[in-house]
Design a protein around this nucleic acid. Structure first.
Lengths: 348, 348
DNA sequence: AGCGTGACAGCAAGCGCTTTCTATGTACGT
DNA sequence: ACGTACATAGAAAGCGCTTGCTGTCACGCT
């Protein structure tokens, strides 16, 4: 039924070994023989059996990219950059690798299961993007898994995720804390003293770091951090909408709302508008990430730009061993404050 | 070094065959034996060797999802829905499958190469999303490839892509033409007679169908289709920005701009604003897809909502053989016109 | 002329798992 | 009690490929 190496060998009148060597090209084969083999491959429309090849060679060309939410451009942009470098087909790499992205949906179990699946396939490398979950048992399980992957020869790279010491993983982390601080300082500088904060899900590192940056800034300026001013939600627009209404209910005198990310900020803007409040005249709004749409909303969003594509590309290169690892296996990537129309001094 | 089935068998004092059967669970194994095996698996921290398993069983649990641009939520949303149904880990499906998304970046070569790679891996199913490329040689190559995949037992499903007859693929197509017509008719109904159209890349089916729908509407109302009113670009914001400036240069008297999709529409809005034109008072703008952000821009975008998540879920189910194929192997999915603030009568 | 030396090509032994077929008990029915 | 049927477990034959090792020439050097 299906064409095998042996069929090709028979047709080209050579041994299977020779066909294999022609295909893998790491062993001298006479030009005329090679031609003959290639011709047979073509005529028979032969397709290598991946599993068999992987089994015999004990290696695979699979590279996994884990993302929390594939429908979120934050991850899409990173994944795209990573994949381009891995050299999924046509990438700079040459050797054809199957770079695939796996959507965990933010679920700890799926994250772990995907890692196991990738481990089963003896993946050549794995890149984990975005924040990690801070549940202790889960973290322990993840670290153990990463350690095992690394030990088995799989290159593990973290992109936009805090370092996991002792796992052998290379980390490119985002300076969420610094970005958060800078953003809130900007608002404080404009004169704001009552700032609402819409945080992401409780148990994620990204959430915690951004929030800490925010609080650092408040503390540095001697501003009391009223617990009513912080609401947790998901990293999506809907959540931002609801959280903003809640914030307004708790304290209608807020003059600024800082959101966990741009999508949340969008929801916040909608909620404010629906509440009859003008941005930035009555309330300022700030986001985080600087996704492409952030410049298009009106007013354009003040936010912290994260070099997602650059970081992804670098992570991809490191995963392929085409770029030196950062010293200590970790590098921090800074964000850049983008001041735009959505923020202004209070009572504008 | 690595733990194999045989190691587990030895530790559990059974034969490798029994271990395999416990793991695959499709053969009677006494409860006590099973326990013993499971215990050994756990103690040894055994991980199945995917390639070996796939080779021996001649099947694989890999499912590929091809997308044109992973950074575009249009694809992200579909991919997410497909993956959820495939049952990547934790999905409804139970059996653990490795659902992976492959980013072609819109390149014909990469599309083909990914298909080959998936074919190598003997993928269980493949879902292709989004428009196809209309280059004849490429189409022929694709069709041949799809045919071969289908013949080899891989389930092939097209989601939001025109049917490829003779390939054995199941198609869920979007009614881009109908949606395009409806949208333009809405504008005509408002009184517009000079409508600019920003189309996508020339060689894509989606581009052509939406444009045809637009022209159908114009023709139906006896409106001349001035070639100056159509500009081709990419499916992104930047392109929309530039195309709009070009449109304005060619004919400053346009009263409406219809964009190939929402991202392009966003760029169009920015260009109009930068040109000092108010939306919708001076120029109306319409998009396509109804991505999440479309409701947040100001004014909110009039657009055609495509049920991306629903279609993706259905495609995923069909790929898993959990939903009956549509009659004739093809089903058309309609869009829904969403009238919002970005469109109004001319000289509003 | 004789032999060392490359340059190729082939043999054959696996890689780790699945699965058919066979063997061994055990529990029935009569 | 004896034969039959059923429930389990094992032996072993691959699945299709890679690769270390073993030839076999043909060439060039002394």
């Amino acid at each position: 039924m299906t064409v095998t190496l042996a069929d090709v060998a028979a047709r080209a009148q050579v041994s299977p070994a020779t066909v294999s060597r022609v295909l893998n090209g790491n062993y001298p084969v006479a030009a005329t023989t090679r031609e003959r083999v290639l011709k047979a491959v073509d005529e028979l429309d032969y397709v290598l059996n991946g599993p068999a090849s992987a089994l015999a060679a004990a290696t695979s060309d699979l590279v996994g990219i884990l993302v929390n939410d594939i429908a979120d451009p934050f991850f899409g942009i990173m994944a795209s950059a990573i994949q381009a470098e891995i050299g999924g087909p046509g990438g700079r790499a040459g050797g054809e690798r199957l770079a695939v992205v796996c959507n965990t949906g933010g679920s700890p179990e799926r994250e772990l299961t995907y890692l196991t699946l990738l481990q089963r396939q003896r993946a050549a490398a794995v890149v984990l993007t975005g924040g990690a979950i801070e549940d202790a048992p889960h973290k322990a399980a993840m670290d153990a898994k990463l350690r095992k992957l690394a030990d088995a020869g799989t290159r593990v790279v973290l992109c936009g995720r805090p370092q996991a010491p002792e796992t052998g993983a290379i980390a490119l982390t985002f300076d969420n804390r610094g970005g958060g601080r800078e953003l809130t300082e900007h608002l404080i500088g404009l004169g704001h003293r009552r700032l609402g904060y819409i945080a992401g899900p409780q148990e994620r590192t990204t959430t915690r770091h951004r929030l800490e940056g925010h609080r650092d800034a408040l503390a540095a300026h001697g501003i009391e951090d009223d617990p009513r001013w912080t609401v947790h939600g998901r990293y999506d627009r809907r959540s931002g909408y609801e959280a903003t209404l809640e914030l307004l209910r708790r304290d209608p005198s807020l003059t600024a709302v800082v959101a966990a990310n741009d999508s949340v900020a969008l929801g916040a803007c909608a909620a404010l508008r629906d509440s009859g409040l003008r941005i930035p005249d009555e309330v300022s709004v700030a986001g985080f990430d600087d996704l492409p749409f952030s410049i298009d909303v009106v007013p354009a969003l003040t936010t912290v730009r994260l070099p997602l594509a650059e970081a992804g590309a670098r992570a991809g290169r490191i995963a392929m061993g085409r770029e030196e690892e950062p010293p200590g296996g970790i590098a921090s990537v800074r964000g850049e404050l983008m001041v735009r129309g959505s923020t202004a001094g209070p009572r504008g």
